[in-house]
């Protein structure tokens, strides 16, 4: 057992699950989506990105790419939320944008986890 593998695997999967937690629920109902969860999703996603840096293999590069996609989508969601909250009104339309952006990030996270699992199964040890 490799501690580093445990930590990175933990963060990869955590990024996906917490992202799902935020995304799950009626897309137009702000009461079902906690801002704390979005914050946690962004932080965990950033951490898992940093953990993916440094692997120069083909798979490592794709993992990093998916993680960057998730980061960008989550940062976009946070930015949209902040701008609408302070500069206009959070209506159904803008809230739907926030949730769908995080949904995109969720897809990227799922891809990343699938790749990660695939690599784990492939390794003989």
């Amino acid at each position: 057992m490799n501690l580093q593998k445990v930590i990175s695997g933990f963060f990869f999967i955590f990024a996906m699950t917490i992202n799902f937690g935020f995304f799950y629920g009626d897309i137009s109902n702000p009461a079902l989506h906690s801002v704390y969860e979005l914050f946690a999703a962004l932080i965990i996603s950033l951490i898992s990105t940093v953990l993916k840096i440094g692997d120069k293999t083909q798979l490592g590069s794709v993992l990093l790419a998916t993680s960057l996609v998730a980061d960008i989508q989550l940062i976009a969601a946070v930015t949209v939320w902040t701008i609408t909250e302070y500069l206009s009104v959070v209506d159904t339309e803008s809230f739907a944008v926030i949730i769908s952006l995080s949904g995109g990030a969720l897809l990227a996270n799922i891809t990343s986890v699938i790749l990660y699992i695939g690599e784990t199964l492939k390794s003989k040890r």
Binding site: I43, L46, I47, V50, L51, I53, G54
Partner: peptide, 11 residues
């Protein structure tokens, strides 16, 4: 690669 740990600390 060298900035991995500092980035983690900052985040």
């Amino acid at each position: 690669q060298k900035l991995r740990i500092p980035l983690l600390v900052l985040i």
